[in-house]
Design a protein around this nucleic acid. Structure first.
Lengths: 107, 107
DNA sequence: TAGATGTATACAGATATGCGAATAGGTGGA
DNA sequence: TCCACCTATTCGCATATCTGTATACATCTA
């Protein structure tokens, strides 16, 4: 199987990998998958400051991974594509198996 | 659906997300999926310096995402679990659709 | 329009990450 | 053992990313 081109991998990195490259953004993504929420609801739920949440949402929004919709003074965010959660869940499964394999090698 | 615990997401970030958080590591992973290769073969193929390749391989090795096997003076690396490529390919598909959706919104 | 509420952004400092250059470590052949 | 080759690591620097604080911007209500 051929190796994907550098340009595509560069895009993949910038648009997707980098977006999930922060724990707080991963938390936000799961919280939005649970249900759409507005900024301060996320801040309360995840115990982050409002500016921190807002900046992380901006990162996700710029990559079109979340969608913002204004509702009065509040802005409600939702996931643009739930397959992003599929990706994260696949990673979690891989993590579990990898940790197990690593544990077996130690023993 | 419940939101995964903070500890698990922290692990996910450190062990998987961070590992794919660099373009060169992504290139290395695809090159190893194509076939096992030793360090300097990767350096030649991907046009990176030998120390750069070695450092990136160390990152992947510490997380048990690649496996090293010595072959004479050379060290051959291979993917520990090809599902990591599944994850990356799923991201690529998501990227394609996301870019398309974003392009449609512009027009 | 003034005030309250909710969200986004600017700034500065701290931390993390990646790289080139140099060097140390490991392996096999002469 | 000496040497050539391959790989791993160290050091110093440059760059990127994240955060709290402060503040600007947006919206609604009275």
């Amino acid at each position: 199987m051929a190796i994907p081109g550098t340009d595509e991998l560069q895009l993949l990195h910038e648009q997707i990998c980098q977006a999930v490259g922060d724990v707080k953004r991963i938390q936000i993504l799961y919280a939005l998958h649970d249900q759409p929420r507005h900024v301060s609801a996320l801040a309360d739920l995840l115990e982050m400051s409002q500016p921190t949440v807002s900046r992380h949402l901006a990162v996700l929004r710029e990559r079109a991974l979340v969608v913002a919709e204004r509702n009065g003074a509040a802005v409600v965010y939702r996931l643009a594509d739930s397959r992003l959660i599929d990706v994260l869940n696949l990673m979690r499964q891989l993590l579990r198996d990898t940790l197990e394999r690593r544990a077996n090698m130690m023993s």
